[in-house]
């Protein structure tokens, strides 16, 4: 069957391509419209925080007994006497071009200070995310498969319980159990992946597990609800009637439409994983970005704190954009123009 197109008039195929391109552009636009305000406001809060703290580099660079004129000269040098918005937009411009500023404490570029540390935090948070996805999906699928049986109730109770356990409590109990009592795993420290997978993994697994509990619970819950409601949909019956087997119906038809809430939850949980790093890193003595943030904040090293916060905001925004793109790809009908 050849499609006959009248010369000059666009064929229906090219119309469809055009239509898809418009939908795509619309999706990109909605994505940016949702996340640009978050980034701008997040970076604004970050900068504002430094500004209203009223701190200056003098205590860190000149010591306590500095003269007023010396302090003023220093403020001038760091540009702290300029109007607020002038300072903000200069800083924002630098951040967007990859320049995170220099630490007040040692004059080093913050990006260099953060480099090695971010890897540690992202290892722990990434592994926690992975644990959350794997165990959350397994538990949620199990509960949905055996809906209204003891398995379902057990999973429900389990996820309700573990979601109330804060990461730092879980961390302490894990150390007590696996490091102090059983001597199975190291209690603290970090070994880079370059020195082998096993040492790296043994140091990072406990912090990751401590961080992951909440994610496991929420993913399991959302997946269970998603699956239970997807199972009832007509398109599942449709697939069965067309003669597809149970496994195929589940993986191709039910799961695809049931996962969106649990994937959306990952987007919501990511900030908590990054935030939780502050405490877990302290418990497991990992010198990640959370420890860096705490030290810098206590010292009053404003540029370092701002850099850490803005990097966190950027990570959250990027992660959520990825989640959004995945959701749109999985469930195109949900992204219809609103």
């Amino acid at each position: 069957m050849a499609t006959v197109s009248i010369a000059g008039a666009p064929s229906r195929g090219s119309l469809l391509i055009h239509h898809r391109a418009r939908q795509f552009a619309g999706a990109i636009w909605r994505l940016l419209a949702a996340f640009i305000p978050v980034f701008l406001l997040g970076s604004f809060f970050t900068f504002l925080l430094g500004s209203i703290s009223g701190l200056n580099p003098a205590p860190l660079q000149l010591g306590d007994g500095a003269s007023l004129s010396a302090v003023h000269a220093l403020e001038q040098k760091w540009g702290l006497t300029r109007p607020f918005f002038d300072q903000y937009f200069t800083w924002l411009g630098h951040v967007l071009s990859g320049n995170l500023g220099r630490s007040w404490a040692n004059n080093n570029p913050v990006s260099t200070l953060l480099e090695g540390r971010a890897i540690i935090t992202l290892s722990a948070a990434g592994l926690a995310l992975l644990i959350g996805i794997v165990f959350g999906f397994a538990l949620g699928a199990l509960a949905a498969r055996y809906q209204n049986t003891w398995v379902d109730r057990l999973v429900t109770i389990l996820s309700a319980t573990i979601s109330t356990l804060p990461p730092f409590i879980v961390g302490v109990v894990l150390i007590d159990l696996f490091a102090t009592s059983l001597h199975l795993l190291p209690a603290a420290g970090y070994v880079s992946l370059g020195q082998g997978f096993e040492p790296w993994f043994s140091h990072i697994i406990l912090p990751a597990v401590a961080l992951s509990f909440d994610t496991v619970a929420d993913v399991a819950r959302q997946l269970r609800i998603g699956l239970v409601s997807a199972k009832r949909q007509h398109y599942v019956t449709g697939a069965v009637v067309r003669g597809l087997n149970g496994r195929r119906v589940f993986w191709v038809h039910t799961l695809r439409n049931a996962v969106s809430p649990s994937i959306a939850v990952l987007g919501l949980k990511f900030p908590a994983l990054l935030g939780g790093a502050v405490v877990t890193e302290s418990i497991f003595q990992l010198s990640g970005y959370g420890q860096f943030a705490t030290q810098a904040a206590v010292q009053g090293d404003v540029p370092s704190v701002q850099a850490v916060l803005v990097v966190a905001v950027i990570l959250v925004v990027i992660f959520n954009m990825v989640v959004n793109v995945i959701l749109n790809a999985l469930v195109p009908s949900a992204s219809r123009g609103t």
């Binding site: 978050v38 997040g42 908590a272």
Partner: peptide, 12 residues
């Protein structure tokens, strides 16, 4: 505010 990594901001 919901998207901010809560604890890091609280500490800072």
């Amino acid at each position: 505010m919901i998207a901010l990594p809560f604890l890091v901001f609280a500490v800072a």
